[in-house]
């Protein structure tokens, strides 16, 4: 993972105020949390299921809770975090709707980033008769962990139908901010959402 350069990390960092409490779901090796703690003065915990990532996060000095996100966040108090982050993991979750609701229960605000399936290159792949394979979707159809891919338009509908407010949305392609035609030109979307 090209970590510090990840566009969504920089956006998320800009949304976190010093001293705020962050819960990073699927925190990997703890790189985002380390960034938030060191650069933004945040207080953070990660949740991670993979043994190697748990070990890597602990080695980085990150507080990590080894747990399966698919089981939800039971045990975590309501509104106990300022931000609950799910970075490029939503599309690999089986219980998509449940985890979004759990994030909005435990956090004042949820931050979700995902690869945009509506990205023009993906559309071209489909027109060409193939499943999209790209920098953001580096898997083949038979080995992808991504079971719930969506477009930016899909996620907007998802939120609107569930009384979830989109506070802010940033869209990127190859690390560059996209300012128009998000659903066509953007390969990565980062959302800030709250309960209405």
């Amino acid at each position: 993972m090209n970590t510090l350069a990840r566009a969504d990390f920089q956006v998320i960092a800009s949304w976190v105020e010093p001293g705020e409490r962050v819960l990073d779901l699927g925190c990997g090796d703890g790189t985002l949390l380390k960034l938030l703690i060191e650069k933004r003065g945040a207080r953070g915990y990660g949740i991670e299921i993979d043994d190697h990532n748990v070990l890597a996060a602990v080695s980085q000095g990150i507080n990590v809770i080894q747990s399966d996100l698919e089981a939800g966040l039971s045990g975590f108090e309501d509104a106990s975090f300022d931000h609950v982050v799910l970075s490029q993991t939503l599309q690999a979750m089986r219980h998509t709707e449940e985890i979004v609701f759990e994030m909005l229960r435990v956090g004042r605000e949820a931050v979700v980033s995902f690869p945009n399936f509506g990205y023009w290159k993906h559309r071209l792949d489909i027109l060409d008769g193939h499943m999209p394979v790209s920098e953001r979707l580096p898997y083949q159809w038979y080995n992808t962990p991504n079971v719930h891919l969506c477009t930016i338009a899909d996620f907007d509908d998802f939120c609107a139908q569930r009384d979830i407010d989109v506070v802010e949305r940033r869209v990127f392609d190859e690390g560059r901010l996209i300012t128009e035609e998000h659903n066509f030109l953007g390969s990565l979307a980062v959302y800030r959402i709250t309960r209405r």
Partner: peptide, 8 residues
Amino acid sequence: KQEVSYAE
């Protein structure tokens, strides 16, 4: 809000 890591 105490500091804790947990491994299973």
